[in-house]
Design a binder for these strands. Structure first.
Lengths: 343, 343
DNA sequence: TTGTAAGCGTTATCAC
DNA sequence: GTGATAACGCTTACAA
C-alpha cells in the first residue's frame, strides 16, 4: 500500500481494492510506533479567539498544504498552565516540531522544550535566542505609530498597554523609546488584550487632568474598546482623540471603525514559521544520514518589517485655548481626515 | 506509574523520581496501541478565522477541562475537501469521537463518518438525523429578526444570504417563511460568509428600483460589510436603512458597529457538543460491559432557542413621500434610536 | 507485591 | 517479487 517499488501492479490494485471494500484504514499509532516518526507538527496558539492569532494559524496551514505533515492545533486559552499541558501532550504525541504562536511560556520553559523538539516561536518578542523565532520588529512598529502621531502634531500621547500579555513589554519599551526620541514624555496606562480592558484605562485617562490628544492601543481589540469607551464619554475619534493600534487585523479595516494601525504580516509570519520548522526537520534528516559530525545551524531570528496603514481614527489634535484638552467647546475645527465617512 | 493499586509506596516514588530524572515521557502511540483507546476527541472547525466558530471551539474546550480527554483541533479552512482529509486524519488517529463545527460535508458523507465514530454535528442545520446535532432554532432566529423589523414598520426587507455556506439555506427558508407569514414579499440577494461578500450585494440592491428599508444579513461579518457598503454609498444606518444580523459575536457588540443581532449561544453550543460526545462514549462503554443486547440511543437533536439583542443598527424606516425609498431628501426625520451615539 | 510474556497494528529486514 | 519475522513502547493478564 505504501508505493513499494517491488510489487507487481496487479497484486497492488488487488490489495488496494480489497482494502477499500473492507474499509481498511491504517492505524496511525501503529505506524508511528513502527516508523519512529509521526509526520505531525503541533501548533500551540495563545488564544484562538484572537483574530490576530487565528490569522497566523491560517498562514501556517497555508504553507503546510502539500507537504504531507499533519498539523494539529492546541489552544492555550490565554492560560500559561494550559499551554504547558498542551506542550506536554505534543511531546507525548511525538510531534516532530512545535510552532508556538504568542506563547506565554518563560524563556526557561522554552529552552526546555526546544531541547526536546525543534521549536519555532512566533510573535513572542523578548524571547531568548535558544529557539527559532518569527517576529515583527516591535520597536519599529511602535515607532511608526508614534512618528505618525507626532507628525500630525500630537505631543500628549498615551499608550494603553497589553498588561501581562505577550509582547506587551516590548511595545511598552518601544513606545517609551519612540517618545523619548521625540523629546516627549511617555505615559502608559494598564490595559490588556481585550476590548473590555480598555474601558477602565480610558476612564482613568479621562478623569485625570492631563487628557491625551492621542492614544496608542496595544492591539486592535483594545483599540476598538478604546474608541467605544471614548464614544461613551462623548468624545469623537479622531476629532477629540486620535487612536492608533497595532496588528491591523480585519477588525481595523471595518469601515465603521477604520483604525489607523501598524500592520503585522500575519499570514506571512505563519508561513515562515512552517518553512522554518520544515528546514529544521530536513536539517535533522541530513545530520542523521551523514553520520559525520554535522552540527545544527544556530537559532534563526526572523524579524519582519511592519508598515503603517493610515485610516480614519487618527488626525491632527484639536486646537484648544488652554494647553490641555477639556470637554468639547465651540472653537473646534473639523478634523482633516473626516471622521467616519467613506473615503 | 499508572496509579496501580498493588505497588508499594516506596517503589512507586523511586520509579517516579527516576523517570523524572531521566526525562522519561510515555509514548502515547504505544499506549494507544496497547490500550486500544486514545482518550482523544477531534474537533473539526469550518473556519477558525470566523469568530462564531472560534467561540464554539472555546465552549467545547471549556467543557472538556478536567475530563482527561485530549481535544485536538483541525481547521477545514472553508474547504470541503480539506475537511474530508481532516476527518480521514481523525479516523486514522483513532479519535474516540468527532465534533464537527459548521461542517460542509453532505448528509451522505456525514452518515459514513457517523458509522465509524460517534459524531456530533454543531451549527449545521439541515443536517440529517443520523448524528447527534446541536443547533440553534434557525426558523425562530430569522423570525425574531423579521418580526423586529416589521414591528418597527418595515415592509421592504431584503435578505443578504450566506451563498453556499453552512446554514445559508435554512436562513433563506426561515426568512421566506417569516416574511410570508407577515404577508410580505421576501427578497433575497446572494452574499456569502464574509464582509467582502456584502459589497456586491449592496451595490446590486442600491442600483435597483425598489431599495429596501431594512436588510437581514447572513451573519455578523456580512452585516459589518453591509453597514460599510451602505456608508460608502452615502447611506446611514439605521436612518436610511436598518441592518439586523445573526450570530451576535463580539463584533456585533462593538459600540461603533452596534448591530442588532439574533444571538446564537455559541459557548453553550460548544459545551453541549462536548457533553453529548461524552455521553456517547459512556454509552459505548456500558454497552461493552453489559454484553447484553443493549442498543444505543437514537440520535439526539438539540435545538437551542435564539434571542434578539436590539442595538443601534435598527430603527423605524424613513418617512418618504413616494412608496419606495430613494436617495436622501430633505424630508428626513431623525431616527428614533440615535445612530452611533452612546446609549 | 513483583516479574514475565503476549499482544496491540504497523514497518523493516532478510531470506527465499 | 514475495513471504516470514523481529522490532516499535506500551498495557494486561497471569504466574510466581
Amino acid at each position: 500500500m505504501n508505493h513499494a517499488p517491488n510489487v507487481s501492479d496487479e497484486k497492488r490494485t488487488a490489495v488496494l481494492n480489497a482494502a477499500r471494500e473492507l474499509g481498511y484504514r491504517p492505524n496511525l499509532h501503529a505506524r508511528n510506533l513502527a516508523q519512529q516518526r509521526t509526520r505531525t507538527l503541533g501548533i500551540l496558539v495563545n488564544d484562538i479567539q484572537n483574530p490576530f492569532f487565528a490569522e497566523v494559524v491560517a498562514g501556517v496551514e497555508e504553507a503546510s498544504a502539500g507537504h504531507d505533515y499533519d498539523v494539529i492545533i492546541l489552544n492555550g486559552g490565554r492560560d500559561r498552565e494550559r499551554e504547558r499541558r498542551a506542550l506536554e501532550t505534543f511531546l507525548q504525541f511525538q510531534v516532530e516540531a512545535v510552532i508556538l504562536i504568542g506563547s506565554r511560556q518563560d524563556p526557561h520553559e522554552l529552552a526546555r522544550i526546544a531541547q526536546l523538539v525543534p521549536t519555532v516561536v512566533v510573535a513572542a518578542s523578548g524571547a531568548p535566542t535558544v529557539t527559532d523565532t518569527i517576529a515583527t520588529d516591535e520597536p519599529a512598529a511602535t515607532q511608526l505609530a508614534v512618528d505618525h502621531l507626532v507628525e500630525l502634531g500630537h505631543t500628549n500621547i498615551v499608550h494603553i498597554d497589553g498588561g501581562d500579555n505577550v509582547s506587551a513589554m516590548s511595545r511598552r519599551l518601544g513606545f517609551d523609546q519612540a517618545m523619548t526620541a521625540h523629546g516627549l514624555q511617555p505615559r502608559t496606562v494598564r490595559g490588556g488584550a481585550h476590548g473590555t480592558d480598555a474601558e477602565s484605562a480610558v476612564r482613568a485617562l479621562l478623569s485625570g487632568d492631563h487628557q491625551p490628544t492621542a492614544i496608542l492601543a496595544f492591539n486592535d481589540l483594545v483599540a476598538a474598546g478604546t474608541v467605544d469607551a471614548l464614544g461613551s464619554a462623548g468624545l469623537t475619534v479622531p476629532h477629540d482623540v486620535s487612536v492608533v493600534s497595532i496588528d491591523n487585523t480585519f477588525l481595523a479595516a471595518l469601515a465603521h471603525l477604520s483604525l489607523t494601525a501598524v500592520n503585522q504580516p500575519r499570514r506571512r509570519m505563519g508561513q515562515l514559521a512552517f518553512a522554518t520548522a520544515l528546514d529544521r526537520l530536513h536539517e535533522r534528516d541530513t545530520i542523521r544520514n551523514h553520520r559525520d559530525d554535522l552540527v545544527p545551524d544556530p537559532p534563526k531570528q526572523l524579524t519582519l518589517t511592519p508598515r503603517l496603514v493610515v485610516r480614519r481614527s487618527s488626525g491632527p489634535p484639536r486646537v484648544t485655548t488652554s494647553g490641555t484638552n477639556q470637554a468639547p467647546t465651540a472653537t473646534d475645527q473639523p478634523p482633516q481626515p473626516p471622521a467616519h465617512q467613506p473615503n
